[in-house]
Computed example of a mutant assay.
Amino acid sequence: MIQGGRAQVRTVLYMAMMSAMQCNPVFKATYARLLAAGKPKKVAIIACVRKMVVTLNSMLRDGAMWDENTAKN
């Protein structure tokens, strides 16, 4: 269960990931890999949200643009 923190931010991140899993090949592959490993769907979505936040933070830190090849790591 996800609890605590800012509910509005959680909702925005969740909805952003729902869209990204359909359109972005990196997140789509990550989600599919987690489901294949037997993870529940909501757990897989939240794991992808965390991956997105970490990727976005590193992009901001480095001043980099989105690069599918480096995001796969």
Score class of each variant (00 low, 15 high):
A29V: 04
P40H: 09
M18I: 10
L34D: 06
K39S: 04
V43H: 00
M15H: 11
V43A: 06
N69F: 00
A16R: 13
M21Q: 02
I45V: 13
Y31A: 03
K42D: 15
W66E: 05
M18C: 13
N73V: 12
Y14N: 07
K72G: 05
E68C: 00
V12L: 12
M21T: 05
R6Q: 08
M18D: 06
Y31I: 03
V54P: 01
Q8E: 14
M52I: 04
S58R: 15
V54D: 08
M59K: 05
Q3I: 13
R6V: 09
A37G: 01
N24E: 15
G38W: 02
N57M: 11
T30I: 01
A16C: 11
R33P: 05
K72D: 11
C48Q: 02
R6F: 08
K28M: 10
Q8L: 08
V54R: 10
W66P: 11
S19I: 08
Y31F: 15
P40K: 11
A36H: 00
K51R: 15
Q22D: 04
M52E: 03
D62Q: 14
A16V: 02
P40C: 07
M18N: 10
M17Y: 06
T70N: 06
A44V: 08
D67Q: 08
V12T: 08
G5K: 05
I45A: 10
A36S: 03
P25C: 03
K51S: 11
T70H: 04
N69T: 13
T70I: 10
P25M: 04
N73G: 10
A20L: 15
T30G: 01
N73P: 00
P25R: 09
A47P: 02
A71D: 10
I2R: 00
F27D: 00
A32H: 06
C48A: 12
C23E: 13
C48N: 06
T55V: 13
L34E: 04
M21K: 01
C23L: 13
M1R: 02
S19K: 08
V26G: 02
I2Q: 03
L34V: 02
W66D: 06
E68A: 05
M15L: 14
M17S: 05
K28S: 13
A37Y: 02
